[in-house]
Design a protein around this nucleic acid. Structure first.
Length: 461
RNA sequence: GUGGUUGUAGCUCAGCUGGUUAGAGCACUGGUUUGUGGUACCAGGGGUCGCCGGUUCGAACCCGGUCUUCCACCCCA
């Protein structure tokens, strides 16, 4: 007990059932990515620190897992920094690599590095784990998967429209109905800040506004005042606090508010285009909503902002997010490349689906038919049937060890039961003589004798 | 990074104001049943009470530290 093994906090082991369920979600997402014309790429799990550092803000830098240099790294470090125990200054001296923090920045790096081989607009998808050194809590891990789809090299708003459809398609296929796709636009937020004369306080303003549903109108007002936004300016945006109604209705309120701001009006136009297109195309099970308080990832988004929240009644943070960044690759030296993309939070989607019991049985079913092993000659007979079943696409297996006593027979039955295998085949001397199989349905507790081809036909039906 | 919370058998937990050999259910192993699991009955194995240190005649219980769990903040998928 003393040396019980463990794994680092915020990481998880996955059992066979969990892997099956996760694969089901991933495959569903991947299938839709392909249907929408995205191509897969993969990038290394760790990058040069210089690629990642400074791209996610101060908070982000703190949350990046750094990889210690190999060798006698302290000897090479600056003696003064070492003596002063200055962690911030020491870090770049002893760590030159870091674990991937998200898939977007590595993608930007990829695009710049391979720009001559890429055909633009480039639509890529990527499903890989990322790592963050923050404190775990519900739906929040230190190692988790992101499933990203991005388009780079096109400023067309049809991309945004397609991403809304893509979200709808994936969640509909998963049976996760009633998700809300929330949209906003950086230009609207800039416009509001401009109109109230607080352009320089845009970030503080939006961060406060983002908390509306959490701390309420009063709390937001307090926070804005604390950040130095004048009371008169806050009064001007009061209509935002109670904004409701349809996408279009909200837009018309914004139109009045933002009439003086060219940037704001452009944001309205963009959102209006998307709303109109989606209204005409229709959505299967998701709903599209305008949410002016949405301000996540504002550091780099320049146009559309997406966030998907789980169906009502499920306590979970966002299960997806994304947006447009006009200068995605600029940080790596490739100018004027507009990019827009979305991300699916696999681990959170899994938690929500598990809670709502949405995983279909087929998704987690492994072996369909289990053969009891009565001995060498019986096993040889069983293997022929198993081979036929496998060729027909039915997962089948033989218990590796032979029955030597009644106890062993029980053991094999128990084994099949624990593995949740729906059919057990008993084939002894009688069945061999008759060229049949005795098939037991473990759920119903009934058994029937039939030929191999009859059993295969049973699965074809 | 801040605040709080949790840690007793493989799992879920009980253990009164510190007092002798730490309990239950489920799971596991064996038997009642030598071609049959899941339901019933009987028996059995398994824990230095997260770890380190301290207080005490005596600590699962009190104190400190540390790790872990979960929650909120921050931020985010």
């Amino acid at each position: 007990m003393a040396q019980k093994p463990s794994i680092p906090k915020g990481t998880r082991d996955f059992s066979p059932t969990e892997v099956a369920k996760r694969s089901y979600v991933i495959n569903t997402i991947r299938t839709q990515f392909k249907h929408f014309g995205f191509q897969p790429i993969e990038t290394p799990s760790f990058e040069n620190s210089s690629t990642l550092m400074g791209k996610y803000g101060e908070e982000g830098d703190r949350l990046i897992f750094k990889i210690l240099n190999s060798g006698d790294y302290l000897r090479k470090a600056d003696k003064n920094i070492l003596a002063n125990a200055d962690s911030g200054a020491l870090t770049p001296q002893i760590s030159e690599k870091a674990l991937r923090y998200d898939l977007t920045v590595p993608f930007a790096r990829y695009v710049v590095q391979h720009q001559n081989d890429i055909v633009f607009p480039f639509k890529r998808y990527q499903i890989q784990p990322v790592w963050r050194a923050d404190r775990p809590q519900k739906g929040r891990f230190r190692e988790f998967y992101q499933c990203d789809a991005d388009v780079v090299g096109s400023a067309s708003l049809w991309q945004e429209v397609e991403f809304v459809q893509l979200y709808d398609a994936v969640f509909s296929r998963l049976g996760l109905e009633g998700v809300t796709i929330k949209m906003n636009n950086r230009k609207i937020l800039s416009g509001i800040a401009e109109v109230i004369g607080a352009s320089d306080l845009l970030i503080d303003f939006t961060v406060a506004l983002d908390k509306l549903d959490k701390i309420g109108e009063e709390g937001v007002t307090q926070e804005m005042l604390a950040k130095g936004i004048p009371a008169a300016a806050i009064d001007k945006v009061k209509p935002l606090f109670t904004l409701s109604g349809s996408f279009g209705q909200q837009l018309s309120v914004l139109k009045d508010l933002l009439a003086q701001s060219a940037t704001g009006m452009q944001g309205i136009e963009e959102l209006s285009f998307i709303d109109t297109a989606i209204s005409e195309l229709g959505l299967e099970t998701a709903s599209l909503q305008l949410d002016v308080t949405l301000a996540r990832g504002l550091n780099y988004y320049t146009g559309a902002i997406f966030e998907v929240s789980a169906p009502e009644g499920v306590a979970m943070g966002s299960i997806g997010g994304g947006g447009r960044y006009d200068d995605l690759t600029g940080i790596f030296g490739l100018k004027d490349m507009s990019g827009v993309g979305i991300s699916f939070g696999l681990d959170r989607i899994y938690l929500v689906m598990d809670e709502l019991e949405l995983f279909p049985e087929e998704a987690i079913q492994g072996t369909q038919v289990f053969f009891v092993n009565f001995g060498d000659s019986e096993a040889a007979y069983a293997m022929k049937a198993i081979t036929a079943l496998r060729k027909a696409g039915v997962a089948a297996e033989l218990y590796p060890d032979a029955v030597t006593s009644n106890k062993q027979m029980k053991k094999q039955m128990t084994y099949a039961h624990k593995r949740d295998i729906p059919f057990v085949v008993l084939a002894g001397s009688q069945e061999i003589q008759d060229q049949t199989l005795t098939v037991k349905d473990m759920r119903l507790g009934e058994q029937h004798t039939m030929t191999v081809s009859a059993l295969i036909k049973k699965f074809r039906a």
